[in-house]
């Protein structure tokens, strides 16, 4: 077989794999199977943490991600926001990555409207701050110094929702919705120094990096990826997009496992031939 033919064959196989991948996701989305989903302890811990907070407690949502991971991040943020609003918590928001600012503000308004919450009275979005380290440390000293005004340029202290909230001492927990290692920074700078509770809601890629902190008790729980969001939706009793995507998640995983096995079988056959 010539080099050209080999390349063409490879390209052909590649395209077949791409089509199989697309089908493995599309078909279960159209023809629902409804596989049962069990909740894990990590996600239940997050749920119970928020559920145990008394009405009026303040929680901070930090949108520490960009638009690349929206399909994973938004279901997580939505589920956690719905729970916080349902519990009548005071919801405060910020972004440590620039794109998180528009995402956070949009989600706050959308989910806030669902529950009839009023901006400035029940929730507020502070905006974006670069240099995560100093921003996290600054919030432990004086929030209004880090964020003198909110996302819309109005004095932060003029909003009723901010009454009695000056630093981490007045905050029940920081929920870092992150697609990178931002929760680790929250642990290093906010949890270790100021003792604030940190709850990571991260992409699945970041899940394994959070387990050491889960075991050491440095984080209150862990919700990771679309699966974490699906579990949270189940705990809320309102299955949404994430839960509906779990069938597709299962079939795509089965396809990839099948591809790995097929690749290895081919390798063994080729070795035997030689």
């Amino acid at each position: 077989m010539s080099v050209n033919e080999t390349l063409q064959k490879r390209q052909h196989i590649r395209r077949i794999v791409f089509i199989l991948m697309a089908l493995s996701v599309i078909l279960p989305l159209i023809f629902k199977i409804g596989l049962p989903l069990k909740t894990t302890k990590e996600v239940r811990d997050v749920f119970e943490f928020i559920d145990s907070l008394p009405e009026g407690s303040a929680v901070v949502f930090s949108f520490d991600h960009d638009t690349a991971t929206l399909p994973e991040m938004i279901p997580l943020a939505e589920a956690l926001l719905r729970h916080s609003f349902r519990k009548n918590l005071r919801v405060l928001g910020l972004a440590l990555l620039a794109e998180g600012a528009a995402i956070g503000d949009d989600n706050f308004r959308r989910i806030g409207n669902e529950f009839g919450k009023v901006y400035g009275e029940d929730y507020i979005f502070w905006g974006f701050r670069p240099q995560v380290t100093v921003a996290m440390l600054g919030l432990g000293e004086d929030i209004s110094r880090v964020f003198p005004s909110d996302y819309y340029g109005k004095d932060v202290q003029s909003y009723p929702v901010m009454e009695g909230i000056d630093s981490y001492d007045d905050i029940a927990g920081v929920i870092s919705i992150a697609d990178g290692d931002m929760p680790v920074h929250w642990i290093n700078y906010a949890q270790a120094r100021y003792g604030v509770n940190v709850i990571p809601a991260v992409t699945a890629v970041m899940a394994t990096t959070m387990y050491p902190f889960l075991q050491s008790g440095q984080i209150a729980g862990l919700a990771a990826g679309l699966r974490g969001a699906a579990e949270y939706e189940m705990l809320l009793g309102k299955p949404g997009r994430a839960a509906r995507g779990m069938d597709a998640q299962s079939s795509a995983h089965l396809l990839i496992i099948g591809l790995i096995i097929a690749g290895n079988v081919l390798m063994i056959i080729e070795r035997r031939r030689k």
Partner: peptide
């Protein structure tokens, strides 16, 4: 996701 699938077949040995 497509490239992961392709890599799973060709490289994960």
């Amino acid at each position: 996701s497509f490239f992961v699938a392709s890599a799973a077949f060709r490289g994960f040995r």
